[in-house]
Nucleic acid binder design. Structure first.
Lengths: 164, 164
DNA sequence: TCGAGATACGAAGCATACTTCGTATTTTAC
DNA sequence: GTAAAATACGAAGTATGCTTCGTATCTCGA
């Protein structure tokens, strides 16, 4: 434990500055990325999460909400909310699956595909800008470390909770 | 641009996997940290944000809400909400400042200080656990890189928006 | 001293992000 | 073939995290 003595000789905890706590720094990084994303893509009225959803749909072509939630590692209820907002703006179609009437099959509308194509470059730039203050080598190392941490936890969260 | 030709010779964008995008990985890291924090500190019914606030108050002794918001790099309105919740549980006292009746001076109650002392070890463990899958050397490098990114953006967000 | 600007809040509204509970539907085990 | 288990959703509630707008208060310069 990091302790120190003060003038009266009492043992006390030395405060651990917020700016050195991993969790605090991660939250700040998230804030910074969202801000950069909004700057780059604000004109399209799209959020990072919505961009993730559109990207996932572009790959899947068609998928139910639970699958999409797992794809983007997000809570199912939150995913539904975002998909509803995208559907309200006609970027996504949400139709009941005939073969499993519990499920809502989602897919990009032509407008959604067009939007995705239009924002692609800006969105990628925002992602890259987030690590712009690191050297090329550091950026690669940073992404690699993030991937390892994420991979180490990928079997215990909602996305792939198969061992719980 | 990363492009590829398909069988028909059309140029198309190769999808950039979510799992390689900095912003996506940062969001996942944040999710992971919050989950680890809840596991470690769940019994105290405290969130990472509330822990940050208690920590900041322990250092400041007394501070108005705007100062606290800047300390923890958080929107003022959000900070107010968290402080209200802490005050409702009697961990924080929010009183109108006699010398500036616009301001609410906040400080830890004895119960708040006691809670902070009780949580400290678990909270620190959660912060460390977030980077547990990296080597000691990597953890230091990772924190250093995060600090550099955050520092590079610290003069353009709500916390210290003096150049806008 | 008085009025303009700055400051500290609060209220309202939207978008994440999570939990728990309930419902409809499908699958599976017997 | 049917009852139990699993699955896909939806609704409701809470906490973050942000913006915009409005109000009260303070400060400082003319």
């Amino acid at each position: 434990m990091r302790k120190a003595k003060n003038r009266r000789g009492e043992t006390r905890h030395r405060p651990w500055p917020l700016s050195q706590r991993p969790g605090f720094l991660i939250r700040r990084l998230h804030q910074i990325h969202v801000a950069l994303f909004q700057e780059a893509c604000g004109e399209f009225e799209i959020t990072p999460l919505q961009y993730s959803l559109l990207s996932a749909l572009a790959v899947r072509k068609t998928a139910d909400q639970t699958t999409l939630a797992a794809d983007i590692a997000l809570d199912r209820t939150t995913t539904t909310g975002a998909l509803k907002r995208l559907a309200a703006r006609n970027f996504v179609e949400r139709a009941v699956d005939d073969e499993d009437r519990r499920a809502r099959l989602c897919k990009l509308t032509p407008a959604g595909a067009a939007l995705l194509a239009k924002i692609e470059a800006s969105a990628r730039a925002a992602h890259r800008a987030t690590l712009d203050n690191l050297s090329e080598r550091e950026q690669a190392a940073f992404v690699d470390m993030m991937q390892r941490i994420v991979a180490a936890h990928s079997n215990r969260d909602s996305a792939t909770a198969i061992f719980d």
